Amino acid sequence: MRKGFISKRLRSGRKIVEESIEKKIEIMKAENFEWIDVQNPDRSDIEELAKKYNFNTLNIEDCMTRFELPKLDSYDDHFFVILHFPPLAQKIGISKNSQLSIFVGKNFIVTVHQGDLKPLVQLVDICKTDSEQQSKNRLLGKSSGLLLHEIIDVLVDDLLHTSRKIIANLDELEDRVFDETKPVARSIALLRREINRLRRIVNPLKKFVIEIAKNVKRFSESKDEELTLYFDDVIDHIDKVIETLEESRETMEIYKDTDFVLSTEKTNKVLGLLTIIFTLAIPSTVIGTFYGMNIDLPGGLGESLTFLGPHTMFIFIILASSVPAIMMYTYFRKLGWISN
């Protein structure tokens, strides 16, 4: 397997050079409403829109906050919602989400974000050009409610695509877990972090999409049944993402436990081998210790044994060290402590 597959497939902890996103305000006029997309805005830009569409001051503050909890505020002529989605890139060690703030009324829809949601940026590009006229007509041809569905739908589809990448990572990780030559602890930790981050995004998302489906009917000329079917399809995709993430989390726990067991077994084998080596070396260590003392011993410097030649004492020491070691080795093999 390729080393570092997590970082290539998903947003891992690898440092990514982030491109600076310039401030951009795009206004796309449709027959019945207009779509205003604001990327990386200044406070003055949001305040001008607030004066034009009578936005609540607290919602303006929420738009300017880089991270605000998901929420939905409903008013007589519009509603305001904050949703979170995974960004295109993130800094090392920081698990951040990208915030999307949306104001929806009968004749307008305003989206505020930092420009790092690629599917949303692509929708804006489609509506600003005539290169994909059919898609442009589908997005701007009916009502603000249907456009809101399209925006949420492409972002949820991106989540679904990311969850499928996680499944691909799990398949590759399974082979690495059982390969003792490749460490996988860091890969497991990175993928677990990615799964948990997506779960924190997706779990509240379903609740807010259901609330959006209830509120958006007030500002749409489409039939209630049509909008309901559209948003039910989005909710079904969210359920698939949640189900995939839950299964992936359970699988990751299995892989984590398996890797721990295999690593522990490998460590025990190494420690067992070192213990056996040390045990077999005990006889020679003991003999060497005695003859290293400054006392008279048989065969010492003061007494020379030569019945096996000039190296008789050396041969005797080798035999005295080897015979107990061989006996211990044979006994350990009989007990099964040393495998073949």
Rank of each mutant, 00 (worst) to 15 (best):
H149T: 12
N268H: 00
D158L: 04
R164T: 11
E180S: 15
I326T: 06
D62S: 12
G4Q: 08
P183K: 11
C63R: 03
Q99H: 05
K269C: 01
I238S: 00
H237Q: 09
V202T: 04
S248Y: 14
T289D: 13
S98E: 02
F219D: 04
I276H: 01
Y255W: 15
E226K: 06
D175H: 07
V234D: 01
D236K: 12
S187D: 12
L83D: 13
S304I: 12
I6A: 12
S135N: 08
S74I: 09
R9M: 02
F208D: 06
K24D: 07
L297D: 04
L160R: 07
V216W: 02
L319D: 03
H311T: 06
K29D: 04
F33P: 00
S7M: 06
D232L: 12
G105K: 03
L139A: 00
G309V: 00
N107P: 04
S248Q: 08
E194I: 03
Y329V: 00
D236Q: 07
V270Y: 12
D157I: 05
E211I: 04
L227H: 14
D76S: 15
H149L: 07
L205C: 07
I201N: 12
A89E: 11
K269N: 14
N340Y: 10
S222I: 08
L155A: 05
L117R: 05
A168L: 11
I277K: 09
A50Q: 09
P41D: 11
E61L: 15
Y331H: 09
H78R: 10
V184F: 14
F332M: 11
K142G: 07
V241D: 08
S263D: 08
F260I: 07
S101N: 11
V286H: 15
Q39D: 10
L305T: 04
S284L: 10
K217Y: 09
G93V: 06
G4V: 03
F178E: 00
D45Y: 13
H149M: 03
Q99P: 03
I242Y: 09
G13Y: 10
S220Y: 03
S187W: 08
S12P: 07
E247I: 06
R218T: 13
S339M: 13
L159Q: 06
V124N: 01
L58H: 13
F332D: 06
P86S: 11
S263Q: 08
Q90N: 14
L191I: 00
D153M: 03
L262S: 00
F103V: 13
K269D: 03
L271I: 03
E174I: 01
R193A: 14
T129N: 01
W337M: 04
L319I: 03
